[in-house]
Nucleic acid binder design. Structure first.
Lengths: 202, 202
DNA sequence: GTCTATACTGGGATAGAC
DNA sequence: GTCTATCCCAGTATAGAC
């Protein structure tokens, strides 16, 4: 016995899943509502029974992702030291793992953010919000007396910007780009941020 | 005496200039052809006499920018050392200067790139192309025996990604974001990349 | 709740007069 | 070359039957 409510939940899930698949192919901006419903085997009108618009669907997808990301960095919080290689590497590894797993959603999200009116400053807002973990760690270091190369919020944003944009470029490149393994990427970013260019030769 | 040709050139210039102004306000994606023509004091049809579409106009604007950028890094080419603080800083400074000066065009360009179909890998292509200078310097270091934290192309892309995305976020934030001076930004990025987090305390 | 059919809108692009 | 007027399409969103 399948209730009305259960069928609705099923349809909703089908739409969300279809959206991920279609976003992976065509991205967020290139995807029409009808693309999603077609991929889900549902009709156009049904979409609006579950979401007000494409943006609301994206928000729903983001919820899953944020949950995963929170779980990933949960045990990394606390008074750890970001200048410790293993700890910095773990942070970056979480980022890469989540990026890989939720690629369609992250791609969609970044496209959506970049498509927004620049003068609202939404890009900064998003970047700031998404780099809270880095920022807190850097602030902690700063308070402890460690002399950082700049303001914690600025550095955290710079690190986040690097990872977001590089991840987007690299992971959407597919056959059109280079084939680095995840470990190579994580190691390179870790050592670049930890020791920089000058320190790496030693 | 103003010839037909001169008037046409004037109109073209007016359209380009108007586009910069409107892009600064609403961005590339949020700007309609009619916004540009209205700002230029011309009529809709006239636009198509000079450009096939919005994208072609953007390409024309990019030409100016690339010229400026080339001039900026011209004297930085050659067998210099990117692990030398002054040299790395000069590179980053050029980037910030060009970003500031051509902000509307860079914003437009990044929006346009991000709006493209992700599966074509155009983001990687663009990033790769725009980081040629970094890449060549790193390859030179690598050949000289300096042990880098990763593949030159990957590191160059990472640095470019950081600067592009951070620049976009920071410079479009306006009142909605923090107010770092250009020097603070350049110094922070320089030291972050040169010494990293661990080396900065020394 | 889901379908089909259709109305509506924004915006790109063109035709033809001047 | 530039203008005005208009066409046209893609894509969103709704109305009403089932």
């Amino acid at each position: 016995m399948v209730t009305r409510k259960e069928r609705a939940a099923l349809t909703r899930a089908a739409l969300l899943d279809a959206a991920r698949r279609v976003f992976a192919e065509r991205g967020y901006l290139g995807t029409k509502i009808t693309d999603i419903t077609a991929a889900a085997g549902r009709s156009t009108g049904t979409f609006y029974e579950h979401f007000a618009d494409k943006d609301e669907l994206l928000t729903a997808l983001m919820a899953d992702l944020e949950n995963d990301a929170d779980i990933g960095i949960e045990h990394l919080e606390g008074e750890h030291d970001l200048t410790d290689r293993a700890h910095l590497r773990a942070h970056i590894a979480v980022f890469v793992t989540v990026y890989r797993k939720h690629l369609p959603v992250i791609v969609a999200r970044l496209q959506s953010t970049m498509a927004a009116d620049p003068s609202t400053g939404s890009a900064w807002r998003t970047l700031y919000d998404e780099t809270g973990s880095f920022r807190r760690h850097l602030e902690y270091l700063s308070e402890k007396g460690h002399r950082l190369p700049g303001d914690p919020a600025l550095l955290a944003a710079a690190m986040g910007a690097m990872m977001s944009m590089l991840g987007y470029s690299l992971f959407t490149a597919g056959d059109h780009g280079p084939a680095y393994g995840d470990d190579a990427i994580v190691d390179a970013l870790t050592d670049l941020l930890l020791n920089g260019l000058a320190g790496a030769g030693q």
